[in-house]
Every structure is written in structure tokens, then in C-alpha cells.
């Protein structure tokens, strides 16, 4: 038991030393700017690699990974989960919260009825469609409505 405690103690001290050494070097690591230096066209498919070299220091992936292709837009959760500091150089948090929020007052596709080009869930009469889509893939419902944003769900499912 004493040996175990000694090992833990040594490992903790080594970890602490490594952490302090890492902190001492943090001053040399660059930060992204708070916002993109130039305005970008609204609704245009963004391809960062058009202007940026495909190389990135620190913990960011190469810029070409963020090309806003149709696949990227549909699977953006994987990128938002690890690179939201890059997302936030061009997008305000409210851009994400147009759809992802704790309490939705109005269906996003209705709020932005003047922007049918934006990818938004539950277009049309989803009251009809959810009876099929909910059985087909309940996990896709859960991500938004499992633990939040389910005031409408519990009106019937209670």
C-alpha cells in the first residue's frame, strides 16, 4: 500500500512538473483572431482553403477540413464538438442557437421563412411526419429533445 502511495505521489509530481512546463510554453502558442478580418458572403459555400494555407498550428485541424460542403453542413456536429473556437470567428453563438437551444419559441424554418436556402429541420407539417420519423430514428430526436426543448413533446407524450 505504501509503495502504491509512493508511486501515485511520484506520478502526481511528474504530472505537475510537466503541466508547469507546458504552461511556461503557452506564451509561444498563437490564438485565432476573435473575428474573421474580412466579411464573408452570406449563404455562399465557404471554403477556407481558398485563401488559407492548408496548415494550422496548435490544436486545430487543417483549414480544408472546414470546407462547408453539403456533407460538412449535415455532419457539422463533429467539428463543432472540437473546433468551436474556429466556428466562432465567423458565427455568433446565436447562429447555432437558431436551431440548437434549450427552449424554442418558434420553429426555426418558420422564424426564417425568408431563408429557405438554410438547412433547417422540421420543415412543412412535421406534426404529421414525426409519427414516422420518430419511429425510424429516435436517436435523431433525442439529440435536441431528449433532455431539453421538449415542451411540445410532453403535451402528448405524458
Amino acid at each position: 500500500m505504501t509503495r502504491f502511495k509512493l508511486t501515485i505521489s511520484v506520478l502526481t509530481r511528474i504530472g505537475l512538473l510537466l503541466f508547469l512546463a507546458a504552461c511556461a510554453q503557452m506564451g509561444t502558442l498563437p490564438s485565432l483572431p476573435a473575428s474573421h478580418p474580412e466579411a464573408l458572403a452570406i449563404g455562399q459555400q465557404v471554403n477556407c482553403a481558398e485563401c488559407h494555407e492548408d496548415q494550422q498550428k496548435g490544436t486545430l485541424k487543417p483549414y480544408k477540413a472546414f470546407n462547408h460542403s453539403p456533407v460538412f453542413v449535415k455532419s457539422h456536429r463533429f467539428y463543432a464538438a472540437s473546433d468551436d473556437r474556429l466556428c466562432s470567428t465567423c458565427h455568433k453563438s446565436s447562429f447555432c442557437n437558431d436551431c440548437h437551444t434549450n427552449k424554442v419559441q418558434i420553429k426555426p424554418s418558420t422564424k426564417f421563412g425568408n431563408r429557405p436556402d438554410r438547412e433547417m429541420q422540421h420543415r412543412g407539417n412535421f406534426m404529421t411526419m414525426h409519427k414516422i420519423e420518430g419511429k425510424l430514428d429516435p436517436a435523431s430526436c433525442y439529440r435536441c429533445h431528449g433532455r431539453a426543448n421538449n415542451e411540445r413533446c410532453i403535451q402528448c407524450h405524458h
Partner: peptide
């Protein structure tokens, strides 16, 4: 009222 690119 910013100098830089406008966030969306």
C-alpha cells in the same frame, strides 16, 4: 459597429 468582418 465593428471594424472587422461581421459575424453571422
Amino acid at each position: 459597429f465593428a471594424q472587422n468582418g461581421v459575424k453571422k
